[in-house]
Design a protein around this nucleic acid. Sequence first.
RNA 1: GCCGUUGUAGCUCAGGGGUAGAGCACUUCCUUGGUAAGGAAGAGGUCAGGGGUUCAAAUCCCCUCAACGGCUCCA
Length: 651
Amino acid sequence: MSDQIRITLPDGSVREYPNGVTSLEIAMSISEGLARNVLAAKVNGTVQDATRPITTDSAVTLLTWNDTEGKATFWHSSAHLLAEALEELYPGIQFGIGPPIEKGFYYDVDLNGQHFSQEDFKKVEDKMLELARQKQEFVRQPISKAEAIAYFEKKGDPYKLDLLDRLDDGTITFYSQGNFTDLCRGPHIPHTGFIKAAKIMNVAGAYWRGDEKNKMLTRVYAVTFPKQKELDDYLFLLEEAKKRDHRKLGKELELFAFSEKVGAGLPLWLPKGTMLRERLENFLRKAQVRAGYQQVVTPHIGSKQLYVTSGHWEKYGEDSFKPILTPEPGEEFLLKPMNCPHHCEIYKTKPRSYRDLPLRLAEFGTVYRYEQSGELHGLTRVRGFTQDDAHIFCRPDQVKEEFIKVIDLVLYVFKSLGFEDYSAQISLRDPANKQKYIGSDELWEKAESAIIEASAERGLRTVTELGEAAFYGPKLDFMVRDALGRKWQLGTIQVDYNLPNRFELEYTGSDNQKYRPVMIHRAPFGSMERFIAILIENSGGNFPLWLSPDQIAVLPISEKYEDYANEVFLTLQENDIRGYNDLRDEKIGRKIRDSEINKVPFMLILGEKEQAEGRVSVRKKGVGDLGSMTIAEFIGFFQNEIKPAAQPAVL
RNA sequence: GCCGUUGUAGCUCAGGGGUAGAGCACUUCCUUGGUAAGGAAGAGGUCAGGGGUUCAAAUCCCCUCAACGGCUCCA
């Protein structure tokens, strides 16, 4: 073992240090300021404590608050601090897991019946900061499995024992700070003094190990920062994000509503929301015509037998809306939970030739699913919703090409609506849980490789998730985030070899033999409801001009100009410009304010001058006065403003 | 479905064992005003629904429903 080791820093420079040097000491040798900010270090690709000795030539990256891994370490250590504070305040509680998350961390605790709620947050925050000020060091201690078990048996923590059960002897470490010791792989920040601001965000129930058969623990969510100001900024941003919540804006802008009387999860689309929704549908219809789709319509209910055939009844029948009975004994119908079985039956209305394929059937199909009551969430999770659904029936040799075309369509839709922040997820079946799915291994492998190859061919950056497939086939899902960072699936493309089997779909090949087509299920928006929810949150209700429910507001200065206002408004309507004519007995300042609040893109202000000259005074929302124009000029100006999105580039 | 929180006027919210409150919105009247709130008056609530405790319940307790934050689920 040599006395000196060579440390390679991220800039490529190599320095020599005594064997056993710590990352913190390396930082110190560079600058004291850096050393004060080092939270952890990445040594040869592995994040570890900055205080651990390094004993071989290594590549070292010092991690601070500015690094994702630095933050994660900071929050992981904060979880231990939270646990320490909770244990001091609520002796005898037991601990589950306490990991960092995207924004902060949580700790799952079993309070054993003790009460913990919002009023107690401050107390815990203060305790955390009090302990943090003691600059308690995080001490790493490798320990044998037997000793570890003995420790938690003595302490009486069944959850830690459950965790230990799955760990191998020789890999187990404890971390201690102050009076708190936890089973933990680490790494941690050097000491608690880095934590200068703490905020408990909320508490929620969470099943132990995420299994609903297990006991529900109390999950305490919190976030910490190295500076108070960063916490203040974060809380401010959070408040700003809440203003974009589609449930709030949907009410304020009169887009949609819910009624207890109608039922939970059953949205009522108000006139303005319907306007928006129809614009989106027309936009997609046009794109689909260009892409060779044909529109179909199918009923809202179907014979139960249809879903027995498809497999949906067996898979979801238990927790769906119950079958609809008729005067005829034994006759049962289901509220349509999916459009695909109907479309399969459309396929079967006549013999199909290989020349007919691909056959692309599209429908804005409204479906009903009995979502769990606790899952309902604004427009993003509802019980009655409309899918921009389509099913492509194609030959096996056409699957990849068709799949790629659909990827292009989805990307085109996202791009047209300014959705840039999405992730593409390849959702495969869980190989350890095959009984959840229908169909043979062979067909699944074919379908999965089709998706993987098509995504690769389009250069899509994807993440792969096992166990996220549909029961009949794998999917490529396009995920986006809402205002508060929650992930939702919008667009989806699915390859399916199974339903064609179940419905015994066939086509005649060039050799006059019968073959089985492949189905691609796809929905670029996913559902109109969820897509519009995200659109509202992304835009904050400031929709692109072509989607705005009200594009203009005509605002006469006083009653005297009512006739002129009517004339202008009519001319605009004749030119397909929609909006309203504000003839209320209010001052102009008031009318402007109300239009601004309603997020109307353009206001046309009319008074004596405008009437005399046959002009309109144009005001742009959020910007102000644009000066006066003739009506014809405004129409030209408007059409130019709307152009980029109204006439999207041909696919 | 599970854990927790919440439910008062159309909206945002205050109140809280003893006759239900504010601002905005709404209606009427006055005002005819030039780029983000003109003035006055009026109307509007079985305090989510049901049950219980009490001389008395919007207020305390229980149940149901709904919403919110998570968990689980998501064709």
